[in-house]
Nucleic acid binder design. Structure first.
Length: 726
DNA sequence: TGGTTTAGAGTTTTT
DNA sequence: CTCTAAACCA
């Protein structure tokens, strides 16, 4: 097409084809490990390099920040024209970007707040109370799900009410409009609203749509199998003019249907765009032939998938190892020992290993075993740093500065630190603000002025003064601004007065947050214009925080084993992978086991997990597993049986050893001695966490503060812990 | 108002 | 079992 297209030496024919097919709709079915990011980036470089479009005429949409960051990094490496004006970002970030520009068009101001799941839940509870929907009969989570699904399908409250049949749906239908009204009154959007409102902006405002349609000559979407209806419609609108839409995905890796992802978006792409070109990337560069054969064999049991056969030129490699453990402790111990064995015998670093599990509840046992073996690890996902109460408090303070209508955040911190403002007062203010149709802060100020008695006024006034003071602050750097605000709130002082291990840990987290602000300012200096006022920087920072996940903080450079759920693992790869808990009722999970579609999704999940492995794969299951107190015996996962026999080998249980340490672990012989061995104030050294100070000693555990490595609760006698001074 | 106790829930959660 | 959140009492 263009003379420069052949400057793509290390692309296979299918990849090159995808890179060069720039005109018209294109569906790339990219199997696991087939180099789709490479194709995406080279294609963009080709479009820019051949002069078909300027960087600002391209938008590349991903699902995760990590994927967006990787794409940006790799773009930077292959094409020089810096992708500064190119939009390479997640769906949500793109929507926010559009909404910040034209928020008024959909009835918000551009200072709108993004509510995360926790904020939304609080708001929903209030709306449910107002609608007199009983939380006992209709759990908040259930109502939240209905409303979320409706939004993902672009169903508005009226339409939802019209089609509500079940009592649950009818209850949700009563709450939905109230919830939405409250969000708007707060100038706030939940995650789903970002998509809904961005879609509304494009669909209802032809001039806005025209602006983007003419600008974006090329639209690229990664992980297309995960798009929900709202995302599908947004993409459709954006790409309608030029029809240069490339979507990349793998129907076999669709594992988010429960979040609204609609697999039909990828399956029906050819119907939507009859002129579409379809290219299959079927050569896998990641895994050994054995691992790939196992993955193929498992997913082949699914019906209704796009026909494709992943193959590899890689060597056969080791057989997949399966291990039948006695129980989950034995399983964890096996994994820990195997990691140590391979690390020493095959020259692997800790970061070469990953352990996947179906449910977060499984991580604890695995952690214990790793800790005992002295193996450094990091858990990705689960409770995230930014989800911690103290960090959310800090963020709530920042949010109310940006958006004074944000009632959820102001209620969160109205009594943090304690000011003697209890539930009764808060409820009264909230009620008046609803009744008088004014913002919470406005009502709060009337309370402060004494309109509702002098008692509440005295309690509330210092808080109002605090808000005014911190709103007026204007430091030179973002970090200083945040630090000064938080210092004035007295949060840290309160924690210091508490003087417990927990409180000092929380204070440490808050101080770490100042570092986050500093780091943000340093790495985003250009995004919010050098010299942008501090308020703008703060708003950008808060937005960035709202759209980040735990995955983003996963440090690839650390020498640690990685633990995560299979869902979180999508898109990643590791030389050695352990999949734990491969038992029927756990993986596949009970809740999906009797539903054919659910079971197929579990199978895709297994496929995703297996295809993360490059060299070695271990599948483990336990004969007996204690979960939530009771022990159950689960049969091995049906997915193991779906793997061809020749790909598998069983590892014999290390019975004597496991029995021995099992005994020891149940009777903490050293526990009694531990009180003598360690006491609060001792300086200790841990094989993994380094130097720390003992904070608390109980019968068999010690709580040690490792500073930046965190506060850990360790088993005395098992943890590689050594006293260095008292 | 605020600390304590008890009751309930526990699949997955890219943003 | 274990963590969180609502109910409860001082």
């Amino acid at each position: 097409m263009t003379p420069m297209t052949e400057k793509t030496p290390d692309l296979n024919p299918a990849q090159a084809d995808a890179v060069n097919s720039t005109d018209g709709p294109l569906l790339v079915l990219a199997g696991a490990g087939s180099g789709k990011t490479k194709v995406l980036t080279h294609r963009i470089a080709h479009i820019v390099g051949s002069g078909k479009a300027r960087p600002e005429e391209i938008v590349a949409i991903t699902f995760t920040n990590k994927a967006a960051a990787e794409m940006k990094a790799r773009l930077g490496a292959i094409c020089d024209p810096s992708a500064r004006n190119m939009w390479v970002m997640t769906f949500h970030a793109m929507c926010v970007r559009m909404l910040r520009i034209d928020a008024e068009r959909v009835g918000y101001t551009n200072r709108f707040t993004i509510y995360d799941a926790d904020d939304s839940k609080r708001m929903l509870k209030a709306a449910m109370a107002q609608a007199e929907v009983d939380e006992k009969r209709y759990p908040v989570a259930g109502v939240a799900n209905r409303i979320s699904s409706a939004k993902n399908e672009l169903i508005d409250p009226d339409e939802f009410a019209a089609s509500a049949i079940t009592p649950m749906d009818k209850a949700a239908a009563r709450v939905f409009p109230l919830y939405q009204r409250r969000l708007k009154d707060c100038n706030a959007m939940d995650f789903d609203d970002l998509l809904v409102e961005a879609h509304r902006l494009l669909a209802d405002h032809p001039d806005v749509l025209d602006r983007y349609q003419s600008r974006f000559r090329y639209v690229l979407v990664d992980e297309y199998q995960d798009t929900n209806h709202a995302q599908y419609r947004i993409v459709k609108l954006l790409a309608e003019r030029h029809r240069n839409l490339m979507v990349v995905g793998d129907d076999d890796q669709s594992i988010y249907s429960w979040r609204g992802a609609d697999i039909r978006n990828i399956l029906d792409f050819e119907q939507d765009y009859p002129e579409a070109n379809v290219i299959r990337l079927e050569q896998n560069y990641r895994s050994t032939a054995t691992i790939l054969a196992a993955a193929n064999a498992v997913v082949a049991n699914n019906l209704g998938r796009k026909a494709k056969t992943l193959w590899t030129a890689n060597a056969g490699g080791e057989a997949v190892t399966s291990y039948k453990a006695d129980d989950e402790r034995d399983e964890a111990r096996f994994i820990a020992r195997e990691i140590e064995r391979l690390r020493l015998s095959e020259d692997h670093g800790y970061s070469d290993f990953a352990i996947f599990y179906r449910t977060n509840a499984q991580s604890r046992t695995l952690e214990d075993a790793l800790l005992r073996e002295g193996i450094p690890y990091q858990i990705v996902g689960g409770t995230r740093y930014f989800d911690r109460a103290e960090i959310r408090d800090v963020m709530a303070y920042l949010k109310i500065l940006i958006n004074p209508l944000d009632a959820i955040s102001i209620q969160r911190i109205i009594n943090k630190p304690k000011r003697g403002i209890g539930k009764t007062t808060v409820d009264r203010i909230a009620q008046v603000s609803i009744d008088d149709a004014e913002s919470f802060e406005t009502t709060l100020r009337r309370f402060s002025a004494g309109d509702f008695g002098s008692g509440p006024a005295a309690k509330v006034r210092p808080f109002v003064e605090l808000i005014d003071e911190i709103r007026a602050m204007n430091e030179h750097s973002l970090r200083d601004q945040v630090e000064r605000i938080i210092d004035r709130t007295g949060l840290l002082q309160e924690l210091a007065n508490e003087g417990t291990v927990e409180s000092s840990g929380r204070a440490e987290n808050i101080r770490e947050f100042f570092g986050v602000a500093e780091e943000y300012a340093a790495t985003h200096a250009n995004s919010s214009e050098a010299g942008a006022d501090i308020a703008t920087q703060l708003a950008d920072f808060v937005e960035w925080l709202a759209l980040r996940s735990d995955l983003d903080s996963m440090s690839g450079d650390q020498e640690t084993v990685t633990l995560m759920t299979v869902h979180t693992a999508k898109g990643l790869e590791f030389p050695v992978v352990f999949i734990a808990g491969l038992e029927d009722t756990l993986f596949p999970h009970v809740n999906s086991i009797f539903d054919p579609a659910g079971l197929e999704e579990e199978r895709r999940l297994a496929y995703v997990a297996i295809t993360r492995a490059r060299e070695r794969l271990y599948l483990t299951h336990a004969r007996n597993r204690s979960l939530f107190g009771s022990t159950r015996s689960n049969p091995p996962s049906r997915f193991i049986a779906e793997i061809p026999r020749e790909c598998l080998k069983a590892d014999a249980p290390v019975r004597t050893q496991s029995f021995l340490s099992g005994t020891v672990s149940q009777k903490p012989v050293v526990g009694a001695a531990s009180n003598v061995e360690f006491q609060a104030g001792d300086r200790v050294e841990h094989k993994v966490f380094g130097i720390g100070v003992v904070k608390q000693v109980s019968k068999d555990r010690v709580t040690v503060d490792f500073g930046s490595k965190g506060v850990k609760n360790l088993m005395v006698g098992f943890a590689p812990l050594r006293k260095i001074a008292s």
